[in-house]
Design a protein around this nucleic acid. Structure first.
Lengths: 219, 219
DNA sequence: TTTATTTTTCAATGAACGTTGAAAACGTTT
DNA sequence: AAACGTTTTCAACGTTCATTGAAAAATAAA
């Protein structure tokens, strides 16, 4: 990453557009440095992976000195652990609640709601899905944390809605198809799926989820 | 990555188990340093990502000096580009030929052959699928190269087998479900799919591919 | 054989990395 | 108001990184 001809290091410290140079010492009350570091770290780790993310870049985005990482989290690894124990879970969890606890438990419409909600959400936040995949595939412990979260907060709720047997397997199959669509549309950017409208994807994929939720899957 | 207490740097140079210390200068004929670097780089980039992979680690695994990366590829980026332009395509391409050019074009059996072949292959080579995903999601140009390869060498061949309309979309949907199964089984390691037998996965997933290949997908 | 060219390792370079200790600024307690 | 503890930046440290130039060894050409 080093070398003679390299033009990185754009300042981009915080939102203050060229205010007075920050003096040394404790800042005025109200600044939650710890939270700012957590938020910045979540972004940078997702964008760059663990090795690619530098402490200086994270601190820079949070608008504080790199030494604060050591002071608050004991080092880069500690910050990473802290990020992983709070993986921005609320948004997704609330989203799933909105899909599932709806009064309408008819499987075909439940499936359609799942597909449409997630594709619409991922379409709106360009790059969010790819960042999630990068994060999950970059380190083993990330995958473990994500799996625990997904199982507890999402799959079990979907499985509870369908009265069928093998509900865990059924919910996992649904998740696998949704992740596959995301990989094809946002990461690999396969033409036919990347260019398709939300409606097209719903028409194509929702029946697959319906089948996973209702039909006999084993012998 | 630096720090006071750190115990890395296990030699692990090449396969020669402690032979005479290699002398300086050109080595005897027959040693294809360029190819050795390419092979080592493919492994290390897949395992560590672009930022995590060091030139020293790659050269060490190839059994040569780190300076050879500059001599043969102009630097780390050049080596990465060279790796990506030859993404170990032959294995997968030949595999697909075996699945597709089989005489048996009946969609349901074609779908079953696809699912069984890929899951069996990925099961046999533990970590191969995860390494592929890490590689594809780590950098944009990797995703582009992989997409071009997948479209040309795999999807078009599958699409040619089914005489239906929208064959590109159909093949892409099949690929999305297979990638999703791989993510769930090998990367996130979702229990129900990670623990399931190959037969179970075939019974659950193959009908999905059959539907993508045959049924009316657009209203 | 002598000369030239290519291939390889070695040693060194400057940059960037994570980390640390001390000093400075702020809030809190006495 | 004075003392104390906490928070923050700064400056520096040692390490590791990618890269480079020169020397050494092998092959190729003369």
């Amino acid at each position: 990453m080093a070398g003679p001809a390299q033009d990185k290091d754009n300042p981009e410290q915080t939102e203050e557009g060229g205010g007075p140079a920050r003096r040394r010492g404790r800042r005025p009350a109200g600044a939650d440095t710890r939270a700012a570091l957590l938020a910045a770290a979540r972004e940078v780790f997702a964008e760059q992976g663990y090795a690619g993310a530098t402490v200086r870049a994270i601190a820079g985005r949070a608008g504080v000195d790199a030494a604060m990482v050591n002071h608050w989290f004991g080092g880069k690894q500690g910050l990473f652990s802290a990020v992983m124990e709070m993986p921005k879970a609320l948004d997704l969890a609330e989203l799933v609640s909105g899909i599932v606890y709806n009064g309408d438990r008819e499987p075909a419409r439940l499936a359609e709601r799942i597909v449409r909600t997630f594709v619409t959400l991922w379409d709106a936040n360009e790059g969010q899905f790819a960042a999630l995949i990068r994060s999950v595939s970059s380190q083993d412990i990330t995958a473990r944390v994500f799996r625990d979260f997904l199982t507890k907060e999402v799959l079990h709720r979907v499985a509870d809605q369908v009265g069928a047997d093998q509900s865990d397997l059924r919910a996992s199959l649904c998740a696998s198809q949704m992740v596959g669509v995301g990989m094809a549309r946002y990461v690999v950017k396969l033409g036919p799926l990347a260019d398709a409208s939300v409606d097209t994807i719903v028409r194509a994929v929702a029946p697959t989820l319906t089948r996973y939720l209702t039909e006999d899957i084993l012998g």
